[in-house]
Design a protein around this nucleic acid. Structure first.
Lengths: 153, 153
DNA sequence: TTCATTTCTTAACCTACATCAATGCACATC
DNA sequence: GATGTGCATTGATGTAGGTTAAGAAATGAA
């Protein structure tokens, strides 16, 4: 399945039973809070999968759209559950564990440094305001953080 | 296996290959950051399991200890992986998804309200400073938040 | 009961980051 | 080239929550 940049695959509030496996391109998932602000939950480049893992009977919480023209394979959640390796799922939990700890204990600079180290290829491909959104800060704050960082070197 | 209140089952930095299934009592997992501050990652009351899902070959990041006298079953991670239902693991991811979104988009009050609603039984059993630690705020901040909350009612 | 320890609250002050607003820049489109 | 649109940067100002410190209340131990 081909999707164009900007195309929305899933909206918060809808029911959804799909998982998206990215072949080429880049997807993201995000929420919009009551104040209308976007918060990016995840990026999914080539060979990653992305989904809202809510109950299949409940409205989902995340939007999923394409940040680049992409090709994705759409998989049914139930079918995926039978195929997926438990290790990849457990690893996913571990990554989230790290993210939660980061959000609780690290400053904006530390979170940015960690992100750049962990996902260098994504840094190149998305605008900074999206990285800010992923880190849980504003674009202005990220801009200032980066400035200090280069001065420090 | 019986553990006493205060007993530590696992320390950050050690290798660990175990998952703890709580029969009775209450465990928690937490990190200690560079400034020596504790951040509680999870509570595990009766019938929950708790673990640091790091690679078995890597030093783990979490401490696990008992907040009450407890009885726990110790399970090997690899063995557990073969037994565990994929749905419970996927659900665990969903809970973490919610937690990340909360940390990124909600104020201290909102996070507290959500915690009280979601885990009313835990609220009764642990000191407030631990709830603060779980929410990612200081005990002082939680105290202020609770005061305003009761005034508002 | 008494004393010690931990937890909770309150207050004064501080700081990291948010918000708001203006400007500059890189593009695309015409 | 002119003009629009989105993104990055910068500055001024606001604020939620952190820090420090002290006292009150609860818990526990002897």
């Amino acid at each position: 399945m081909k999707v164009n940049k900007g195309q929305i695959l899933q909206r918060a509030g809808e029911l959804n039973t799909k998982v998206y496996a990215v072949e080429t391109g880049l997807l993201r998932s995000y929420t919009i809070d009551e104040k209308g602000k976007e918060h990016i939950f995840a990026f999914a480049p080539e060979s990653w999968t992305i989904a809202d893992l809510c109950e299949e009977t409940d409205p989902c919480e995340l939007f999923i759209d394409a940040l680049e023209d992409s090709t994705v394979t759409v998989i049914d959640k139930e079918i995926r559950k039978k195929q997926v390796d438990i290790n990849t799922v457990v690893n996913r939990i571990f990554v989230l564990q790290k993210r939660v700890i980061m959000l609780m204990s690290s400053s904006a600079i530390e979170r940015y440094e960690h992100f750049v180290k962990t996902y260098p290829n994504i840094v190149q491909r998305v605008p900074q305001k999206m990285i800010a959104s992923y880190l849980g800060i504003t674009p202005e704050a990220l801009s200032r953080v980066r400035k200090e960082r280069t001065h420090a070197k």
